[in-house]
Amino acid sequence: MLSKRIIPCLDVKNGQVVKGVKFKGHEVVGDILDLAKLYSEAGADELVFYEISASVEKRLLDVNWVENIARHIDIPFCVAGGIKSVADAAKVLEQGADKISINSPAIARPELIKELHDEFGKQCVVVGIDSFYDEQSDEYLVYQLTGDPNASSRTRYKTQDWVRKVQELGAGEIVLNCMNQDGVRKGYDNDQLSQIRAICDVPLIASGGAGTMQDFADVFTSSHVDGALAASVFHKNIINIKELKQFLATQNIASRLCN
C-alpha cells in the first residue's frame, strides 16, 4: 500500500535553514546538509527545500548546495526558489534534485507549468500554492511572493480556481500552504484541504499548522492528502519523525517504518 508521506520542509536563506511564523521573522535553524541528513536518517520520506528569498529577489536559487544534498541524501527531494524557465529547472534537476516546485513564477506566467511538464514530465513538476482564508469574503485566496512580508501580495486567483488551472496545465503534485495556519502549530486546515482534495486528481500535500502527532493523523484521515509537510515541529524537536511514523501506524495509516 502506498505510504502517506512525511515531508520536512527546509526554508533556505543565505545558505542556511531558517524558520519564521506566518511567513515572517525568520531565525536560523541550522546547516542545510546537517538537517537534511538528520531528517532522512530519522525516516523522512521526502525533503523539500525552499530558497525563500530567490523569487522576491527575482533570481534563481543558488544551485551549489543542491548537488551537495543529492550526493549525501538517499531519499527524494524537491527544490524551489525563483525557477522561472525550463533552463532554470534544468540547472536544478541536473544537480540531482528529483522534483522542482514553482509558486510565484507560475502565477506570473502560468504557461511555465506546461513548459516544464512537456520538457521534464509531469512527475517532477510540483506547484506550491500559498492560500489565505479571507474572513470578510469567506473565500480562500492565492497569495504570491510570501517569502518576504514586504513583497507578499494577493493575486487575482481564488484558490479553487488556481488548483483547477494548474492541473490543466500539467502540475504533477500540489503543495497547499494554508497561510493562516503557518508556524502556529494549531493543526492543519482540514476544511480547506478537504475542499481542495475533492477537486485535485494529482498528489496533494498539506502544509501549515502541524503541532502534534494527532494533527498528522487527522489530516490523513479527514482530508485524504498524500503527504504532510511541516517545518517547526521538526526543527524544534517537538515531534520526532520516527515516533510520528510509529504513531501513524498504530492509527492504521500507511507509513514507511524505518529501522
Binding site: L2, G172, G227, R256
Partner: peptide, 8 residues
Amino acid sequence: TAPHMGWN
C-alpha cells in the same frame, strides 16, 4: 491519484 508517486 496518478502518477503513482511515493513509497510502496
